[in-house]
Design a protein around this nucleic acid. Structure first.
Length: 265
DNA sequence: ATTGAGACCTGTCGGC
DNA sequence: TGCCGACAGGTCTCAA
């Protein structure tokens, strides 16, 4: 999403902001539109699953897609009306002559406008753990964050304080690649037998792999029906070479986990 | 402090 | 065909 929006939003000005439905996950801040119009987007950054857009006003636009949010970019054609779909909640008309439309059926998404002080103190942003694709994330860091944790490793991976930006799909996919059972206690990572940190190392490597491939797949628009090895594949054969197991679905804290009991221990 | 359950909201799908 | 429950890529709050 960041890569899609960057070319049309960075260095562009908000010409017009339309809020059709001001109640997403949280209410919009006061004078949301008025504080955007006339401002320029300096950069588009991502942190975990948030997009941050620092503006020429020193405020920062904060965006989260929730479960069902999406953006679409369409050219502004002189004399032709914009197409409006169900659940189009926010429209930005930019000086780059595009419309950027936020669509979100479930309205779990979020848009906020933060002053520098609010940005620095933002509780959700402050609590985030390391970015998984940055050098700050490695086997030592992961193992140490998991030390003493009695929760299942799958749930620890979804905890944004431990690692930032992993969701249900990629937590399942990473554990499968690393051959680690999602049911194992997180603490077991820190005390795994064998070479020191071997398990944690396999997991950090797998996390980097699944995320790197996912970003590549999405930004190249090489879409397939189900590009995942285990997610939403209950009952299918495990894709691990020579495994022969069957993908199972279990529920952990109300979320589905897909894994192979045979090759994930 | 940690953990699990429920809440938020709408759409889709499978079974009867 | 129509209804109903289960489930969905996330996060927050509350209570034990």
């Amino acid at each position: 999403m960041r890569r899609d929006l960057e070319p049309v939003m960075v260095a562009a000005r908000f010409e017009e902001v339309t809020v059709r439905r001001p109640d997403l996950r949280a209410p919009f801040p006061p004078r949301f539109g008025a504080r955007l119009v006339g401002r320029t987007v300096l950069r588009l950054e991502r942190r975990a699953k948030y997009i941050l857009a620092p503006l020429s006003s020193d405020e920062t636009l904060l965006i989260h897609l929730g479960m069902s949010g999406s953006f679409r970019v369409s050219p502004v054609m002189p004399g032709s009306e914009a197409i409006e779909l169900a659940h189009d909640h926010v429209v930005f008309r930019m000086s780059s002559d595009v419309r950027v439309t936020f669509n979100d059926p479930r309205r779990f998404g979020l848009m906020d406008l933060l002053t520098p002080a609010q940005l620095a103190e933002h509780p959700a942003l402050r609590a985030l753990g390391p970015e998984p694709l940055s050098p700050a994330f490695n086997a030592e860091v992961l193992a140490s964050a998991c030390r003493g944790k009695m929760v299942a490793i799958k749930l620890a991976l979804l905890d944004q304080r431990i690692v930032a930006g992993l969701g249900n799909i990629y937590a399942c996919e990473a554990l499968h690649r690393a051959h680690i059972s999602p049911l194992k206690r997180a603490a077991a990572l820190a005390t795994a037998s064998g070479r020191p940190r071997d398990t944690a190392h396999r997991l950090t490597t797998a996390i980097r792999q699944v995320l790197t491939e996912a970003v590549e797949r999405v930004s190249s628009r090489a879409y397939r029906a189900n590009p995942f090895r285990v997610y939403d594949r209950e009952g299918e054969r495990c894709p691990t070479p020579g495994c022969g197991g069957t993908i199972r679905r279990v529920t952990q804290n109300g979320r589905s986990t897909f894994f192979c009991r045979r090759c994930q221990r």
